[in-house]
């Protein structure tokens, strides 16, 4: 985030001390989102992935964590951009990532004479089903299994640590509240206590 965006964020906050009304808190949150959206409106250019690797990686991440009734998909949460960042941040992951994506394409070519992205849904599923459950996977697919385990873990790290993922998990800690009301009534009732 650029310095002037941070300043805009700070200016968006009401200047009347630390007690925010709920409306003010909401307003500040919305302003922050608007600034963030503007900052990320430019098309993303990956630093590690080639354009075709990026498409394959994004598709695979969305197959692993798809959109459903409770939250969006991996790419809705920014997982592909996160993956690209992680390849720069932890370069020791690069060979396994690049090689794993290539393994997937080679396996699809071997079976269907097509790259993964050109495969029909049923063909993709056939390959993924063989590597997505390690305990059931055939030993000769060990490289695919290792890649998929690692890719799934990284997708999860990227997805569940976003606001979208945190909201989906209903994690309620570490956020500001406009007014502190103590222990929620529902929790007191469940425990059968009061104060």
């Amino acid at each position: 985030m650029k310095r002037r965006d941070v300043l805009k964020l700070l200016l968006a906050a009401p200047a009347v001390g630390f007690t925010w009304t709920e409306a003010e808190a909401l307003q500040a949150g919305t302003a922050a989102q608007t600034v963030r959206a503007a900052a990320t409106a430019k098309p993303f250019v990956p630093k590690f992935f080639t354009a075709s690797e990026f498409r394959l990686m994004r598709t695979l991440a969305d197959i692993i964590i798809p959109k459903d009734e409770r939250s969006g998909s991996a790419s809705d949460a920014g997982v592909p951009e996160f993956m690209d960042f992680m390849m720069a941040d932890q370069p020791e992951r690069q060979v396994a990532m690049r090689g794993g994506l290539a393994w997937l394409d080679v396996e699809c070519q071997r079976r269907f004479d097509k790259l993964f992205l050109a495969c029909a849904a049923a063909e993709r599923t056939a390959v993924l089903d063989d590597i997505a459950w390690p305990a059931k996977a055939r030993p000769e697919l060990a490289h695919g299994v290792a890649f998929f385990n690692s890719f799934r873990d990284l997708t999860a790290s990227g997805f569940w640590t976003t606001r979208m993922g945190i909201d989906d998990l209903q994690y309620l800690g570490n956020r500001s509240v406009a007014r502190w009301n103590g222990c929620p009534d529902a929790a007191l009732k469940k425990l059968g206590v009061s104060y």
Binding site: R152, D153, Y171
Partner: peptide, 26 residues
């Protein structure tokens, strides 16, 4: 709070054993 590495190695957890898609998300 979910942090980097959250639920890594999900394939070792319980009955699911890995997978992908809606089942994995659940």
């Amino acid at each position: 709070m979910p942090g980097f590495g959250v639920m890594g190695g999900i394939h070792r957890y319980g009955a699911g054993g890995g997978g992908y898609g809606k089942q994995l998300k659940d």
